[in-house]
Design a protein around this nucleic acid. Structure first.
Lengths: 366, 366
DNA sequence: CTGAAAGCGCTAACAA
DNA sequence: TTGTTAGCGCTTTCAG
């Protein structure tokens, strides 16, 4: 409450250069002085990787404790090239899908002795570019960018440029859930089988007897979307069928979009017996809309999602969905970025996906 | 695919000191040389806050572009005291509650021109301590710690120590959703009205005619819990009632705990007409268990949660809960840490909470 | 085993 | 308006 300006009584308070000022942390030299050694010796104790007499080391350690010394990470980073930092660039931490990838990234980073910088871009390509640039300034060991890529020429070029720039600086660009930038571009890609998942799910629905399946999601611009659509279409074709273009609805990856689209679909009078939502979030909106309209799930209409976020289990009925190994994506991203001895300069890892069967597509009798 | 080792053709590739090596970014001096000026001039162009002849500036800017120059954030931070960085320490980004606070922190940090470092501690007090120490090394402008505090003497002392150490270094410790460390400790506290929310919710249930309300949550050790219990109890006392200790179940803040506890409660044969879950996560588990047991919500048993995470709307029936302004908590934390001119050294901000009425407690006829 | 000296890349006096 | 000179705190040769 009241400030004790009487001071002096405080233990372990290091030298106060000027009165009142902040930013007066103690340095190696302070420690050295107190321990009666040179700065280099203190540094050697800090590093640990050098022979120092036990007695000396003890004196130094004590001095450090007494002065409450902590190294200055910046000074340290200035000498060496790296900051022991991994940057994580994502649209929005609030989405469970990204949050789980973030967890994987953070955990692996911690396991590898790296700190994790988090930046969000709110779906703005310009901000992605800006943020990656900032990470170059920070000399991050790796820059991990998650989320759909934009089909924009200039954007693509800038990212390619960053990939080269980071590479030159001994760092690494990692793209998670995005298509590669192209051959020869030094970037690691960690992806999951988007098309395969969509294919498997569509096959599951078709084999359940569904013939008119609505697809709800964001169609254009995002690479993720086109892959899922391709799987959706391919599954149809394998049975000599073709999806009805009228049932493919373009929108956003949000709950509210699913809600609105489902209502619109019902209002349109178009027939359909199943909905394949491009994300679980969309599916949750769909479920709500169908329930409000008095349609039973899965009896009247089956609903399937994509991603397998925790929400899928909370929706009622529980959502059949495509599992994406989110945490593993994050972990792999860090691991590959930090140890890229193995493969060539352009690594490309694709993790598997699989259908998780729950109640929202269960046929009566199953 | 194949590396073009023919090189030399590459435009804008800066000087390569040794062959093959990484970490050869260009520096102010490189730029200066190329632009035919001194390093200071380049620095002035970088800073912007200093008169430089238009022609000179143009030459410098061009040189920077040609060399693909980016400042070294560490070198810059070494001069000044700060890294323009805010640290965010949290149990687990995967929880929606924390994720939303994280979003607030990240957004406000970005708005204030700060980068955001993310660290997770997985409920381990030791890791909190370690992480805060690391953030001291990073010279973060602010260290924001979120989540329940532990009633541990040594832990408390260490945190108090860090508060002083950070303060001395011109930085700031911010505690979000935790009790203050004590008077005179230079830390900012951003909290929300835990007790008030629990009180309001309990009052709501009592006024709905419920007399035997079960409370499920983590009771011991965490400050958050005891405050909520206090509100729960106080609401009873106001009506001359007292909660039945048999209905207060100690566990964890997880979905699976809610699920297990609800089943156990039913199996125990104890009577109750409402469940007040300490978090929405717990409530989700409770809802599932009750549904499995064939109890109707809210007709047989009413369920209420706490936090108002998005999940509350997805559960069926939608969850009555206590809204906590998560993003605002995060934003306030950053804002207060960065501009703490106003109040005394020990700031304490308490944000309000309020009951959000949904279906899970709706009485027939409401 | 320890100290002295140089320098990482940048900024900020102090001159010119 | 611009250049010169000194460090910021640490690591790291190179001597001793």
């Amino acid at each position: 409450m009241t400030r004790t300006n009487l001071g002096e009584g405080d233990r372990t308070v290091p030298k106060r250069t000027g009165p009142g000022a902040g930013g007066d942390a103690s340095t190696v030299r302070d420690v050295a002085a107190r321990a009666g050694v040179s700065a280099s010796t203190v540094s050697r104790v800090l590093g640990g990787t050098y022979p120092v007499a036990a007695a000396t080391r003890a004196r130094v350690l004590r001095a450090m404790r007494e002065l409450d010394y902590v190294v200055n990470a910046h000074a340290r980073a200035l000498g060496g090239a790296t900051n022991k930092t991994v940057a994580f660039v994502v649209d929005d931490v609030t989405g469970p899908f990204y949050a789980h990838i973030a967890r994987g990234v953070e955990e692996q980073a911690a396991a590898e002795g790296r700190l994790c910088m988090l930046c969000t871009t709110h779906g703005d390509p310009q901000r992605v570019l800006a943020v990656v640039e900032t990470m170059r300034e920070q000399r991050a060991d790796a820059v991990i960018v998650v989320g759909g890529a934009w089909d924009d020429k200039a954007y693509h070029q800038r990212m390619t440029h960053f990939a080269h720039a980071l590479d030159r600086a001994g760092s690494r660009l990692v793209l998670v859930g995005r298509p590669p930038l192209g051959p020869g571009v030094p970037a690691t890609v960690v992806d999951y089988d988007n098309e395969g998942g969509a294919f498997a799910m569509t096959t599951h629905l078709l084999s359940g007897g569904h013939r008119r399946i609505a697809y709800l999601g964001r169609i254009s611009g995002l690479s993720t979307s086109s892959q899922r659509i391709r799987g959706f279409t391919r599954a149809h074709e394998l049975l000599g069928l073709a999806p009805d273009p009228e049932l493919i609805m373009d929108g956003a990856f949000t709950r509210s979009y699913g809600y609105r689209a489902a209502h619109a679909l019902l209002a349109s009078g178009r027939e359909f017996t199943a909905v394949f939502a491009a994300t679980d979030m969309i599916a949750a909106g769909v479920v709500q809309a169908l329930r409000e309209a008095g349609r039973r799930i899965p009896d009247d209409i089956a609903v399937a999602g994509y991603d397998d976020i925790p929400l899928a289990k909370d929706v009622h009925p529980a959502l059949t969905t495509v599992n994406v190994p989110q945490e593993e994506l994050g972990r792999s991203a860090v691991r590959l970025a930090l140890h890229r001895t193995e493969l060539a300069d352009s690594q490309h890892l694709v993790l598997g996906t699989h259908v998780v069967l729950r109640d929202s597509t269960r046929r009566p009798g199953d």
